[in-house]
């Protein structure tokens, strides 16, 4: 495990994640997250759908796959325009931080190719590569983030005991690792088979509630 990975996944790394709840704000409002148990199930569901897809895109990007093809693949896997906008915006924010932390031509090129932002997992993978990390590292970072973001947000949204939130994530850790392994294997297959070999696990309820959340007049989190 490289310290660069710790930095990349550190909640203090200035890449904009703190203002996003990973769907938790909508789920809390709709009564689907009410405490530690439902938070754990929410994180699990998100990890195995959104998280798996993000982890595979990140692993493929870290393995040196064509970033723009991955960006197209991310678009096709994100039917919600609210979530596409969020992903590209977070991608832009991460790229800004990444270019300061690990300057690399590949990051400059991505910024030039996608001035409005590339999808966040694609940027995450490219950043991992620039930081000398492996595809598995990138997959772990993306998979962890998919569960970590709703957990952190729920502490603020429900006043959930932060120790309980930490315990939720700790218990999920083996599944995060397993998702990262599966994502990395898929990224490897995509080298020969193309982006169609990457997972496309969908989460239709998250899509619907993301659109609903984006239409709220007032909210605490951007997504």
């Amino acid at each position: 495990m490289s310290a660069a990975l710790l930095l990349l996944t550190d909640g203090r790394f200035p890449a904009g994640g703190h203002a996003h709840s990973g769907g938790a704000e909508a789920a809390v409002a709709e009564g689907r997250i009410t405490g530690a148990a439902t938070l754990a199930e929410f994180c699990r569901g998100r990890l195995h759908t959104t998280g798996l897809v993000a982890a595979a895109l990140a692993a493929a990007a870290a393995a040196g796959a064509d970033l723009l093809a991955l960006d197209d693949a991310a678009d096709a896997r994100t039917p919600s325009p609210a979530l596409r906008t969020v992903s590209r915006r977070l991608g832009r924010q991460l790229l800004r931080a990444a270019r300061a932390a690990w300057p690399a031509a590949v990051l400059d090129q991505l910024a030039a190719d996608r001035p409005r932002g590339a999808h966040q997992p694609v940027v995450l993978g490219a950043t991992a590569r620039a930081a000398g990390l492996t595809p598995l590292d990138a997959a772990r970072a993306a998979a962890y983030e998919s569960a970590g973001s709703p957990a952190t947000a729920t502490v603020r949204l429900l006043g959930l005991d932060p120790f309980q939130a930490a315990a939720v994530l700790a218990r999920l850790a083996p599944e995060v690792d397993a998702v990262a392994d599966a994502a990395t294997a898929a990224a490897h297959r995509a080298r020969t088979e193309g982006t169609g070999a990457l997972p496309a696990a969908s989460a239709p309820l998250l899509d619907v509630s993301a659109e609903r959340h984006a239409a709220w007049p007032t909210r605490l989190f951007t997504s």
Partner: peptide, 14 residues
């Protein structure tokens, strides 16, 4: 995201 000081100081990206 419920943290106004974070947005102006620690993570200014947004």
């Amino acid at each position: 995201g419920a943290c106004p000081h974070t947005a102006i100081r620690d993570d200014i990206s947004a």
